[in-house]
Amino acid sequence: MQTLIWQFGTVVDKLQETSRTQSIAIDVPDWAGHKAGQHIDVRLTAEDGYQAQRSYSIASPPEEPRVWITVERLDDGEVSSYFTDELRTGDRIELRGPVGGYFTWDAQTADSPLMLVAGGSGVVPLMAMIRHRSAAASRPPARLLYSSRSHEDIIYRAEIDRLVAVDSTLEVFHTLTRQQPDGWTGFSRRIDRAMLEEVAWRSEERPDIFVCGPTQFVEVTATSLLELGHAPGRIKTERFGPTG
């Protein structure tokens, strides 16, 4: 296996996604490529040598030459607030990756429907899968069930709408847990078994399932999917403990 060496990338773009999240594009010379769902490690170094490391899911698909991450700003965050408040285009950043060989999805080898369940910024690695799927020549049908606090907190909202508009085999279901805009017709509660029964592929359709979000979100979702008859081995989870 290839050793993951620390290398330097340059920040080439920054986008405000929601009030609390930003996407950051990094140009990494000789990037080895990645699979949708993998992450990178970043390492920050202060003047006196103090270092901090964190992992961030890659938001961009393998087809995109630049590596995009999406960072949620945590008030007490040491690294996340540096990324959102301080980092700017042209800055260099030390990273290594891609990391993680399990929570990944490849359109070329996929032969089952794709079921994605996202909570908050847990959508990031799943968005890499959606973007990868959109760029692929052949693609299994896919559904995304995405829980956000409010309409304004939906990360990638406009892009998701655009992708759904041009692809009848991609279905997206939103649930807004805290606040809903006037006339909201989507779900308005935390994800539960009844919601999954309504929107998820049935167990007989043997979907590939990826769940990413906070711990309780993943616990409830994965347990409900088991109760609905999905095989444990088809449910891949990634828990998004807030990392500062």
């Binding site: 490391q53 616990e219 994965a222 347990t223 444990p232 828990r239």
Partner: peptide, 18 residues
């Protein structure tokens, strides 16, 4: 090296809780 201290007890696992 490369670690930070947390007071929480984060949960990580690859699949559903058996």
């Amino acid at each position: 090296p490369g670690q930070y201290e947390t007071k929480d007890f984060p949960v990580l696992s690859a699949g559903p809780t058996p």
